[in-house]
């Protein structure tokens, strides 16, 4: 199977960074759910805080890399305007819009994906700051930890929506 330059960037953006991000956020969510005094020993809370700290750095970097690569490297290929007479297969947005059965993938799918994905770096950065700044003292602040869990869950939802829609769009009209 031949992988083009554009395929490679799409794999890096979606399957690699996006997939890793989904798994990492889910893991952080589990770590946060256990970060409470009644559930872990003092040593456990300290070790969990170190894991959460490292995990949040990873997620912070992954989220920003994913949205920047998606927006500034892959999206321009997706939305490029075809010259007259060009084969639309090489122009995903135009290809989708030219096929009534597929146009929803652009009008709803891509329109949602390109916007909702950008909420995740803002939310993840705020959560990363709180987790890294408050470390194990977070375990003694139940309201703060609950807030962080809800916000990271919303970030997970936005990443999940973008990854699933991206996979569907790329299946129907690959950027290649």
């Amino acid at each position: 199977m031949w992988i083009t330059y554009k395929n490679l960037w799409t794999i890096i953006h979606g399957m690699s960074l996006g997939g890793l991000l989904l798994m990492a956020i889910a893991a952080i969510l589990i770590g946060l759910l256990y970060q409470r005094p009644g559930w872990l020993t003092e040593t456990g809370i300290q070790k969990n805080a170190r894991i959460l700290n490292a995990g949040m750095w990873l997620i912070f970097i992954l989220t920003w890399l994913t949205v920047i690569i998606g927006t500034y490297i892959i999206y321009p290929w997706y939305r490029a305007t075809p010259p007259p007479g060009a084969d639309l297969v090489d122009f995903p947005r135009s290809y989708l819009l030219a096929h009534p059965k597929l146009s929803g993938l652009h009008n709803f799918g891509m329109e949602w994906k390109e916007h909702v994905a950008w909420l995740s770096p803002i939310l993840v950065t705020a959560v990363a700051y709180i987790i890294i700044r408050y470390r194990e003292s977070l375990a003694g602040r139940p309201l703060m930890i609950r807030a962080v869990i809800i916000v990271i869950a919303v970030a997970l939802f936005s990443v999940l929506s973008a990854v699933v829609l991206g996979a569907l769009i790329n299946k129907a009209a690959p950027t290649s």
Binding site: I122, L123, T125, A126, Y129, I130, R133, Y134, M144, A147, V151
Partner: peptide, 9 residues
């Protein structure tokens, strides 16, 4: 500081 981060987000 956490309140500021959440509100800003």
């Amino acid at each position: 500081a956490a309140a500021a981060a959440l509100l800003a987000a």
